[in-house]
């Protein structure tokens, strides 16, 4: 049995895939077609999800008597005051709520995991263990401090202290480059993996080889 929906889907998908890849040669009409299709589909998909979440998170509690949920609806509509020259200042208010939530959550999330835990873990490195481990740990700490010093912006770079700082700064730059290199090399694997999976789709599903 040949499933028409599936076959047509694979052909449609393969065509779009090749249209997108044609960009590597030159921007062309086929790419433009695929690009605009993608933007339309994704904007529509998210609008559908948006309508759904307005209904489930907002409308259902409101209709079951949680009067306070009228507020987000009002603020939501205030976003649209920006189309009126006279009322546009009101559109800052909903944005202010969003920024408040983002800033609050950002501060909250950063301190424990990104600062305290990291400092604690660094303090717990054994510096006097067996030679190999000690070497690794000391290198770890030196690189860490040098990279931190690379990110110091306002201290004067003169005098003996400034000279010392300059060495650290340069070491920090080198360490940063080493980190970039390692991350770059590792990133390549995932990019290729994704690429490989597209080829599996094109070769195995579309062409039927292998």
């Amino acid at each position: 049995m040949v499933d028409l929906a599936q076959i047509s889907g694979i052909w449609f998908g393969a065509a779009l895939n090749i249209f997108i890849w044609s960009l590597v040669f030159k921007e062309n009409r086929f790419y433009r077609f695929a690009e605009y299709t993608f933007i339309a589909l994704s904007a529509a998909h998210f609008s559908v999800l948006g309508v759904k979440s307005i209904l489930t998170i907002g409308w259902i509690p409101l209709s079951t008597g949680k009067i306070s949920y009228i507020i987000p609806f009002i603020f939501g509509f205030l976003l649209y005051t920006r189309f009126s020259e006279y009322w546009r200042w009101l559109s800052h208010w909903p944005i202010a709520i969003l920024v408040g939530v983002g800033i609050g959550l950002g501060i909250r999330g950063a301190i424990d995991i990104q600062i305290i835990k990291q400092i604690r873990a660094t303090m717990k490195l054994a510096v006097f263990a067996n030679p190999m481990e000690a070497f690794n740990n000391i290198l770890f700490v030196i690189m860490l401090i040098s990279v931190v010093s690379y990110f110091i912006f306002t201290f004067a770079q003169e005098g003996t202290l400034g000279k010392g700082y300059n060495y650290l700064y340069r070491l920090g730059r080198l360490a940063l480059m080493a980190g970039f290199g390692i991350a770059l090399g590792n990133t390549v694997a995932v990019r290729l993996a994704l690429f490989t999976s597209r080829w599996i789709f094109l070769i195995k599903d579309f062409l039927g080889i292998g």
Binding site: K117, T187, V190
Partner: peptide, 26 residues
Amino acid sequence: ATAVAAPGHMAYVESGDISGITIGVK
């Protein structure tokens, strides 16, 4: 983890918060 995200997680692996990690398609 993906191979691209793994280096970023290594700090947590090293601090013991992440007990195990597999990296990418490999």
